[in-house]
């Protein structure tokens, strides 16, 4: 009788384990590569839309000449996340930076631009835009350099020193807010999975043509 009881408990444990495994939210589905067919279609469709935003973003560079473009894709998570893009600049060049946020359709994100990467504690905030969702915006390197000067002026640097300020790199931080995850049932496996909520923001940089005309 005792033996049967032990076996029964063991079986119950195994069944419980199976049930848990089956109903664990499939957060791995929240990755770039989707296994379900509909997921693939959605991702491809989104990518095609974003290609259109890229065109608009490049067009907004006018009259600056295109230097580089970078699209940042992200998935909303149940925690705040940050993605950073490092942009290298040619010293003393004049740049225009354009952003297209038409691909940010879930919750608004924050965009912050610094002179140093996120692991550097004393970096200077050069530009900030909150509640970025849809639409577009832009700024120039002159605006960023001015912010740098303001910062160093407050530290007591002379005008002579301030004129020497160099902006060789900027770091664009995209801060993606946490969302409440929602779940759906995967038709093929019958398992619960997180509904992927994705977004994309497009960035392009353009430079004022350097003195190439002889």
């Amino acid at each position: 009788m005792v033996r049967i009881n032990v076996q029964f408990k063991l079986l119950a444990y195994v069944l419980l384990m199976g049930a848990l495994v089956a109903f664990v939210p499939d957060q791995k589905g929240d990755k770039k590569k989707k296994s379900s067919k509909s997921g693939l279609d959605e991702a491809a469709e989104f990518k095609a839309q974003v290609a259109g935003y890229r065109k608009d973003c490049k067009a907004a560079l006018k009259p600056y000449r295109y230097s580089f473009g970078r699209t940042t894709y992200f998935n909303y998570k149940s925690y705040n996340t940050l993605k950073e893009v490092e942009v290298a600049l040619i010293l003393n060049s004049s740049y225009k930076f354009t952003f297209n946020a038409e691909g940010v359709t879930v919750d608004p994100i924050q965009v912050k631009v610094y002179n140093k990467p996120s692991n550097y504690n004393k970096r200077i905030l050069l530009f900030e835009k909150n509640s970025v969702s849809g639409g577009s915006f832009e700024f120039t390197s002159e605006q960023l350099v001015e912010k740098m000067k303001e910062n160093y002026r407050e530290k007591g640097l002379s005008d002579y020193e301030l004129e020497k300020i160099l902006l060789s790199k900027v770091y664009i931080d995209y801060i993606i807010p946490a969302i409440d995850e929602e779940f759906e049932e995967d038709e093929s496996t019958g398992r619960r999975k997180v509904i992927v909520k994705r977004g994309a923001i497009v960035f392009a940089s353009g430079y004022e043509n350097l003195a190439m005309d002889d």
Binding site: R70, T72, V85, E86, L89
Partner: peptide
Amino acid sequence: IIEESSDFAFAPP
């Protein structure tokens, strides 16, 4: 949480 992109997150001149 900072997530390092799987893509190559830099923009050179």
